[in-house]
Design a protein around this nucleic acid. Structure first.
Lengths: 248, 248
DNA sequence: CGATCCATTGAAAGATGTCAAGCGTAGTGG
DNA sequence: CCACTACGCTTGACATCTTTCAATGGATCG
């Protein structure tokens, strides 16, 4: 349990610096995005309401608790943490979002966000105005079901996080997180073995509901057991089976 | 952490025994239900796809992990627990659902449920076939947004549960649960002071991620502090302010 | 290059879990 | 209707995991 000690930072300067291929057509992340399975003119119409390549620097907020929910984001590159604060200012990280992940579906449209989202590194997102999305959905109903599916996934993820926090020891929790990051990396065509942990040890601890010191000790222990090879943010999983065994 | 030791029970016999006013028109729970703000023929159409008053006895399952998600339920009366199991069979209760609550929105349509839902007492639900709901939504778009809203609420609830598990001491967690039950009771026109806890101490412990013994000791302590007056399932909150103070 | 934050490690304290036992209540069956 | 059994709840004693406190070295950033 730690108090929020982060300095209040202003919102990111929204600089729309186009990347190469800053369009949904041919985007490699389409299958994970809200544009999933869209084709032809539906995809073109969708593409036209999307603001591609919004850049955020490390520490910038995508939005903050209290902001109005009017935009859905998908991560083009980089990573984010989503967190919620309690009455006393204590912070709980709920999710680490990486490439392809959809961010913001945790508030009612036009109501206030209860969470905040902060970039863990230089990152780019696509931004989709919710009102325009819903307008478009009126003529392309699959956009409704796509949104419903995305929200179901969020609920399941959140349930699994509760399972993680509720039933596992600290060591199991860390092992589970590493496995999850590995799998998500692999699903995106990256290495499932070499991980770049862009979040701090404190963030990891917060997500797992463990003190920084505990996390540090756990890394050391996994290292001694020759299950991982960790140097700061770089972690190599050297014994995947053993890691799985610990996680379960 | 406890292993699932519940006997495998068959699904509930689905007996459609009509209650008085087994219709959405004039139903006191409409504002919480998916029928929220529906009027006129839209409401009639919605009503016609709903199977009202399905009875479940204590211990009956509404659905189990692995079942196909094809039906949404709303609780008419009684209460339920929703839980998820990990690979080792450990169980984590995610939610206690009571009158007016919408149950089942934690899977993709036509995919498998990852959770199970079990009645804590004799209960009645309304059951809504998802495919017919979506058909109807094609002509009544507000049904889409109503569903989206319901799912947003679930996500926020789940996030708050993670906050609960992640940042608070066992005593704070129990106090928070009691307050939440009190508020939900009050919001439904019942007493916010006298609570009927239909779940076992073990269930409470599981939900809060604490051992039964810990929960028992916490009840005793809150009793000694003259904050609550607990006799088994009946709990009277005698000092709401003190309870709030502990929760925060 | 200083200041600050992050990560690691040790030592000690504390909260919660586990084990064990007893009690009460509820349901079952004779 | 009563006795018996099973299960849920409570309480005590003890074990242990994790936190907290403290100190140090290393990395990062302006």
């Amino acid at each position: 349990m730690q108090l929020a000690n982060e300095v209040q930072k202003p919102h990111a300067q929204i600089s729309t610096r186009p990347l190469s291929s800053a369009t949904c057509l041919g985007c490699s992340r389409q299958s994970m995005c809200l544009a999933h399975q869209l084709e032809g003119e539906d995809l073109t119409a969708f593409d036209s309401i999307v603001k591609h390549s919004v850049k955020l620097n490390k520490g910038d907020y995508l939005y903050r608790s209290g902001d109005r929910f009017d935009t859905i984001y998908t991560v083009r590159s980089g990573s984010f943490k989503t967190f919620i604060n309690d009455e006393e200012g204590r912070e709980q990280i709920l999710r680490f979002a990486i490439q392809g992940d959809i961010v913001a579906l945790d508030a009612e449209f036009n109501k206030e966000h209860s969470t905040s989202v902060q970039a863990l590194e230089t990152s780019y997102v696509c931004s989709i105005p919710v009102n325009r999305y819903l307008e478009l959905a009126a003529s392309v109903p699959s956009l409704y079901t796509r949104l419903l599916t995305a929200m179901s996934s969020r609920i399941v993820e959140e349930e699994e996080h509760a399972l993680l926090l509720g039933t596992k020891s600290a060591e199991q929790r860390l092992a589970t997180l590493l496995l999850s990051l590995s799998q998500r990396n692999a699903a995106r065509g990256f290495s499932g073995v070499e991980l770049d942990l862009h979040m701090s040890r404190r963030d990891i601890g917060n997500y797992l509901s463990a003190a920084v010191e505990t996390v540090s000790r756990l890394f050391t222990r996994l290292q001694e057991l020759k299950i991982i090879d960790a140097h700061g943010k770089k972690v190599v999983i050297t014994d995947m089976d053993a890691l799985r065994k610990i996680a379960a």
